[in-house]
Structure formats: C-alpha cells, structure tokens
Write a protein that binds this DNA or RNA. Structure first.
Lengths: 217, 217
DNA sequence: TTATAAAAAAGGGTTTTTCCTGTATAACTG
DNA sequence: CAGTTATACAGGAAAAACCCTTTTTTATAA
C-alpha cells in the first residue's frame, strides 16, 4: 500500500501541558506529525533559522509572553507565505479573530477542541487552504454583512485600554491619570471613537465593548 | 514493599482535550489516579449519586456550560465537605479566585500548568489540606474585604423601566419624555438608585443591570 | 376627614461630559 | 526636501450629568 508522507506541523504555544498533549494527539492522526514545538514567536524564528526542514502548518497561540500570535502570524506571512497558520486560542474575542485573520492566519480554532475537530481542521487546511470553525464563520458573516462597519474597526492598543477603563466608573480625568496622558488626549480618544463607532455616549461604549467581548462582566 | 493506595481524583472540565491529557498526566503521578471525569457540575452530581466510591479530590473548572464551578464548589462544600476542591481555570481574575475560595475551594491553579506544579499542588492539598499558588497568595493578601454579593434590591416598576431606558444611549431628558415624567423626577430616580446601588455613574448602572439580568445585550 | 408616607416635581448648584476648532511634533512618503 | 499623516494636547463653551434640599401632589389608612 502506498504511504503518503505526513504533513509536518510546528506548535507555538506557551502552555506546556496543553501543547504537550496536543503534540501527542496530532501524532496520532493519520496524515500529520509534529515537527517541533516552540514556546513563542521568537523561539519559532530561531528554529526556522536552524532547521532545514520547515513545517507545512504552524499552530499558533495568540497569547504568548515574548512574541505574540499577531506578530508571529505577520512574520510568517511575510517570510514564509507558503506555510499555513492556524490560530489557536482560548478567547473567542471577535476583534482578535478578525485581527488574526488579517495578519495572515488561514484558520482559527478555539482551544476547547475535540480531537476529531482538530483533525478535520488540519485536513481542510491542507485540502482547501483554509479552515474556519462555526464560531468563526459566524464572526466573518457578521463582519461582512453590514451589521454596520462595526466589526471592521480595528483598535490600537491605547484605544483598547481606554475603552476598557471607560467601562468602569472612572471619570475621564482618572483614566487620563492612569494612562499617563493628558485629559485632552483622552477626550480626543473619546471623541474619535464615538464617531467611528457611531455611538452617542459612554453607555454606547460599554455596550460596544460587551458585544465585542472587549470586556468581561 | 508496601504500596500506599492512590488518592482518587475526579475531573470536572468541559474541555475534552485538556481534561483528557490531564487525566493521563495525573495517572502518571505516584500517589494519584483519576476516578472519573465529568463535563460539568450536573454530570458530577449524577455520578456522585450512582457511584459508591467517591473521589478525594475534585479538579474543578470554573467555566462550564451547565453548572459552573462556583455552583459546583458550593454544592460540594455543603454535601461533601470532606472532598477537597481544587479550582482550575484559565482566568487569573482576582474576583473569581476569591469567589471560588469563598465557595469552598481548597486551592486554585491556573490551567497553564507544568506537570510538576500540578503534582506538587495535589501533594500539598492532601498533606496540608490546601494549596495556593503564588498568584493566589498575592490575591489573598490584597483582598482586605471580599465584597459581599450585591444585596437583593427590590425595584419598583418605574425604577426598572428607568434603568432599562438608562442602559440605552438616551439622555435623561429623553427618558423623562418617554416615561411621561418630569426630568426632575427622573433625576430623583437616578440619584436614589445611585445611592441605593452604591454606584457612581451611568456606567455603573449598566453593569448592575447586566449582572442582574435586567437587560439583555 | 385628617394624618402621613411615598412619589413627583422643582430649584439651584457643581462637575463631568461632550463637541468644536486649532496647534505642535514626530514619523512616513514621494 | 515639502507634503501628508498620525498622535498628543489646548481653550472654550454648551449640554448633560450629578448632587442636595425643599415643596407639592397623591394615595391610603386610621
């Protein structure tokens, strides 16, 4: 019987227990095997320099200490466009999913995963070149269908911080103090976001943040 | 050589991949073995009814669909006080850790775990009766008074309507119009509720309403 | 009917939010 | 280099939110 060579996979994940078991799981699949395992994006880059054989797929966690999933995905897209990146994360934050896809990820999976789903995702990824779970499909639908341009808005780090703080009972002055910026700058953030998000006041901001999972209750 | 009986453990965790590998890991420990595995608190209860042998330890995830970690910990504390509960979760949310400990958990571990740490935690748990990771110890120190559950507040029909409208982007003037009341009356509602609910502004009101399910997103 | 308690309204004040228009500066671009 | 863009920041002013106290209305029960 003809034996097709297995697709190789690199895991980039800081969670040692999870990544360890993930490796075993993947190696049990018929068509896939783990090539190596890196703790963060930087380690991945180093491995790429040393290794002669590169993986077909990179399983990429978003939350990593040194070089996070976004940076790593971007780096992979620029430097190794043929390698398929499958984002893997706890969070079902719509913003993050979209951002990850824009950074070049070919698919997105929540870590709360069943073995069969992972296998299916990998198969799809190799066959069709992309994979999206149901949850992600929903997200994409919501962003494409004009549920207003709300979904397409990308927030800078400062803006995200501002929103999260504005969802507390702090005054803008207090927020400015915490963020080490002038109250006038904060007011600029506020005004800018209000018009971009088409909201009228701080209540609107809280509702936006909740709908987009930018804050937890 | 004398062989000491292993301590038994039940895992309550919705994440099948994680829980599965956790089980294997625990079974590899010298003094511990997994007795069974439940997907949520309800399933745990059912198992407890059926089984004659109960576990020494319950590894309890906070985030579960049907009966979450808090409820389950509380139920265990009331019905099986001898069983030690070790909370296990992604989130390092201070409030949740404290809440979990108040619900009777004997220890708290972040899921991002190393095998040795888990083993150590379990050993400590059996020996000393409790285990706290560094992070949790910090949290405990910082918490002077764990804020009590929001007191049960009874709202009149008008107040409820006001709150619901105030959770939109309307101004108080507009709310007054809709409710057919003077803006000054509405201001009275606002002021009264702010002091009763111990909140500082409208953001606080939205958060209260969401926590109490007075509004949906 | 009258006492009284609660709800509604108002008066009058301070603070915060919101909305403009505009400047300074560094970073990027052709 | 000049021109564009992005970010931080300012002043001023109107609107809304917030706070405290007092008065009127309304309901209702002794």
């Amino acid at each position: 019987m003809f034996e097709e060579p297995k697709h190789t996979i690199a895991i980039v994940d800081d969670h040692s227990l999870f990544a360890g078991s993930l490796e075993k799981l993947i190696n049990s699949f018929a068509n896939f095997q783990v090539l190596f395992h890196a703790k963060n994006g930087l380690e991945l880059q180093e491995r790429f320099k040393r290794e002669t054989i590169l993986p077909d797929v990179v399983l990429l966690d978003i939350n990593m200490p040194v070089m996070d999933g976004f940076e790593t995905a971007e780096w992979l897209m620029v430097n190794h466009p043929k390698i398929k990146t499958l984002a893997l994360t706890m969070e079902d934050d719509e913003q993050k999913i979209l951002k990850m896809l824009r950074k070049g990820a070919k698919g997105y999976l929540l870590k709360d995963i069943h073995p069969e789903i992972l296998n299916h995702a990998l198969e799809e990824l190799m066959e069709k070149g992309f994979y999206h779970s149901e949850k992600v499909s929903d997200t994409l639908l919501h962003s494409v269908t004009p549920d207003e341009e709300m979904a397409l808005i990308d927030l800078r780090e400062n803006e995200l911080t501002f929103i999260q703080l504005a969802c507390s009972e702090m005054t803008y002055k207090e927020i400015a103090d915490i963020m080490g910026l002038s109250p006038k700058t904060i007011d600029g953030y506020r005004h800018d976001l209000f018009s971009r998000l088409k909201i009228k006041n701080r209540v609107g901001l809280v509702i936006f943040a909740l709908k987009k999972n930018l804050i937890k209750l």
